[in-house]
Each structure stands twice: as C-alpha cells, then as structure tokens.
C-alpha cells in the first residue's frame, strides 16, 4: 500500500519537485508559507474570527481542532479569498497579500482547498475531474484549444493510481462512494500542485481502512507541501499530528503537540464545558 506513495513521492519526484510546486513568485525565504496576523471577521455582530494569528512553516503538517463554531471554516474562507477579513493581514509567503487576490488567483498562486463536503464535478468522469484541476494555463482561450499531451496523460494516470481510482477513470464521479469522492477531491487538489493544502475534515465518512491510507498519504505529502488539516476525528489527528492548534471563539486558544494541547486546562474546559 505504502509502496504506491513511495512511488508517487519518489518516482514522480521530478514532477513534484519543490521548485515546481513553489509556484511562480512565491517568496518563502523565511520558511513561512502562510502568515495570518490579527485577522478579524464578523457577520452582523457575530465575531467569527477574533484577532486570529497563525503561521504555517514550509513543509509543515498542522492540525487545527476546535469545537463547532470556533471559526475553522471561516479561517479557510479567509485564506482562500472567499471571505474578506474586516481587519488584519493574510500573507502567502513573504510577498503575496491574499486580501488582494480573487479565489482563482489564490488557487493559482498555490493554495488548494478541500471542502468539508466533497465537492467534485459529479457529472464529469473521474478522468475529467483530474484533467480540469491539473496545473496548466487556465485562461479561456487556452482552454478552448487545449489538447492533453503525453506527459499530462501520464500525470493523470499516476494520480489515478495514487487515489486508487484507476479502474474507474471513465466512471461518472457522482457515482463514486463517499470515501472515493473524498479521495478524488484530494487527488484533484494534488493535480493543482499546490504549495499549501487546506483540508477541511478530509476523513469524514471514510472507512477505517480509507482513513488509515489517508493518514499515510498526508504524512507522505508533508515536507513537500504544507498542510493544514481541520478534523474532528481525534484518532486521525493522533495518527498524523505534529503540531496542533486549538481554535476557540475565533482565535487560537492553544498551540503545541497533541499531548501538550490535550493537557491544557483551558482546552479541556472548552471541550468539556465547565
């Protein structure tokens, strides 16, 4: 099982070499890929994010946990440009101000996002799903005349192997099982060759075996990509966690290893109530 990851991360290393992943113009000289500073977002008086500050290092795998309504999804919305912060700054690398970019531009700059509910193109085939998300020139005119070359076909084939959907390449994506859809979405994300992956509850609805494989995949990806994983499944967190941030009422409550965080009195209060 893990052989395929090695093959992917090793054999296809040429394809996924950091230089290529880095995206054009990403300046990560200080080792920080994402830097949120003092971000606040409110919806009609409700403060979803309250002076949130967060820094993600290159190659880091960060887990974010927190009770419902803590602002996890809003944080991802801010990073991907879906929601504009009321105050504070969000930088991708040293130079890219995320507040200035549209969703598409942010995606293009190298941030990939997996939604809580798997969002794939249900009426396209699995192959087409991967094809559309592949890193290429994504302007209108190019798309009209685009033809897949051999290298691109190979890349799709590799990805199909990796996400174990090689046998379902021409199947309509909507017909896949929930776990398969999650994997397809992760595959689509990887096709974008992002520098930073935001994964919102990636193992929800997966079987134990699928969860285990996902954990392996994430561990294999870390180092080459930076990952931010939001999850409720503490077993899964325990499996992959290196550094964990606890989000509560829109700001970071605690940060550290899983054991540290779990021992933190405030965190226990938040989770168990007083």
């Amino acid at each position: 099982m893990s052989a395929s990851f090695k093959e992917f991360s090793g054999g296809a290393a040429g394809e996924l070499a950091p230089a290529r992943i880095a995206g054009e113009g990403l300046d990560a000289t200080h080792g920080v890929v994402l830097y949120l500073d003092d971000i606040s977002v409110s919806f009609d008086g409700f403060r979803a994010l309250n002076k949130l500050s967060l820094a993600i290092d290159i190659g880091e795998l960060r887990c974010v946990i927190g009770p419902n309504g803590a602002g996890k999804t809003t944080m991802m919305d801010v990073i991907t440009g879906k929601t504009r912060p009321d105050s504070g700054t969000a930088f991708f690398g040293q130079t890219i101000d995320l507040a200035q970019l549209t969703e598409a531009e942010i995606a293009h700059a190298g941030i990939g996002r997996k939604f809580q509910k798997p969002t794939i193109f249900e009426r396209h085939s699995v192959f087409e799903n991967l094809e559309l998300s592949m890193k290429t020139d994504k302007r209108v005119r190019k798309s009209l005349f685009a033809k897949l070359d051999g290298a691109q076909q190979d890349r799709i084939a590799e990805m199909l192997e990796l996400i174990r959907l090689a046998g379902s390449a021409s199947r309509q994506a909507g017909l896949l099982s929930h776990g398969q859809k999650q994997w397809l979405e992760i595959g689509m994300l990887l096709m974008q060759e992002p520098r930073l992956l935001l994964l919102d509850e990636p193992v929800a609805g997966m079987s134990d075996e699928e969860t285990e494989r996902t954990a392996e995949l994430f561990l294999a990806l870390a180092g080459k990509h930076s990952l931010v994983v939001v999850e409720h499944d503490m077993a899964f967190i325990g499996r992959i966690a290196r550094k964990v941030s606890v989000l509560h009422e829109g700001s970071i409550l605690a940060e550290g290893s899983l054991e540290q965080v779990q021992a933190d009195q405030r965190v226990i209060e938040v989770y168990l109530g007083r």
Binding site: E103, A104, E105, A107, R113, T119, I120, E122, R123, K138
Partner: peptide
C-alpha cells in the same frame, strides 16, 4: 455543477 470548486481549481 460546482462553481466554487472551479474557482478553487484556479479558473477565473
């Protein structure tokens, strides 16, 4: 079918 996914794929 899924406009936001297209946007997050990097298409304008």
């Amino acid at each position: 079918d899924a406009e936001s996914r297209v946007m997050f794929c990097g298409y304008n």
